[in-house]
């Protein structure tokens, strides 16, 4: 943090429901301009997107009803860097297990994700997790009715697994290109290292001009948030 101030980056946090405020606070503390995203036009001009923890079914239904799902999918599949925590991992996955039938996703990660994989709230837990690419020792990790990655495609890098307990060895952190996801919630523990890693991903993507914030016209013609579908 003593390095010269890099170019400012603007990172959106999907703000339909969930622990949005915590993500905004961590990103702001790391020097990014953090903005809530609830409408298609608010995707324009962001260099990266965080998909927060919350209820994936609720977020998905709101995204469908407000016409945000299509523009979101287009943006992350078009190369917008993204970081998902818990429900955010579910939203980013290509394939879901134990989800209500037909629950759509953004399909940005070549993984199969099992919802509520560790069990109900009684099985929610905290632990320390070692993450590849995150120096400084294990992370504080809180898992709340969390999903895990059941299967990861060949282009997906496994960053971390649970150690110990009944779910020993399960995959809980992955990266594919500029898309990062964790089963747990770094935003709840004050450990900013995963967010710092993501801010770096966003900075590098923005620097080489790979960040396609939102395909042109994605905001236009989309239903407004009150629209019924």
């Amino acid at each position: 943090m003593s390095a010269p101030a890099p170019d400012p980056v603007r990172i959106g946090v999907l703000a339909l429901q969930g622990d949005v405020r915590e993500h905004l606070a961590v990103l702001t503390a790391l020097g990014a301009e953090a903005v809530p995203v609830r409408r298609p036009e608010e995707l324009a001009g962001v260099d990266g997107l965080v998909l927060p923890g919350g209820e994936s079914t609720t977020m998905t239904k709101l995204a469908v009803r407000t016409g945000l799902l299509g523009p979101l999918r287009e943006a992350v599949r078009g190369g917008l860097p993204a970081y998902g925590t818990c429900a955010g991992l579910v939203l980013l996955a290509e394939r879901l297990l134990d989800a209500p039938p037909g629950q759509p996703t953004l399909g940005a990660l070549d993984v199969t994700v099992r919802r509520n994989a560790f069990g109900r709230q009684a099985e929610s837990f905290e632990s320390r997790i070692e993450l590849a690419g995150v120096p400084g020792g294990p992370l504080s990790a809180v898992f709340i009715r969390a999903p895990w990655v059941e299967e990861a495609g060949p282009d997906v890098e496994v960053l971390g697994r649970v150690v110990g307990g009944p779910a020993d060895g399960r995959i809980v952190a992955v990266r594919q290109g500029d898309v990062v996801a964790t089963s747990f919630h770094p935003e709840l523990t004050g450990d900013t290292r995963v967010h710092a890693l993501f801010v770096d991903v966003v900075r590098q993507a923005a620097a080489v001009g790979r960040a396609v914030a939102v395909p042109s016209g994605a905001g236009a013609g989309a239903p407004d948030p009150g629209g019924e579908q």
Binding site: G18, V20, R21, G53, E123, F125, S127, T189
Partner: peptide, 28 residues
């Protein structure tokens, strides 16, 4: 250390885990 108060192995029923579910319900 940022994880001084976090257990080394999976631990259920902590205050952070109990309060954490409510954090996920916000805005809902």
């Amino acid at each position: 250390s940022p994880h001084a108060d976090v257990p080394a192995t999976p631990t259920t029923g902590t205050d952070r885990v109990k309060r954490g579910l409510a954090e996920q319900l916000k805005g809902g």
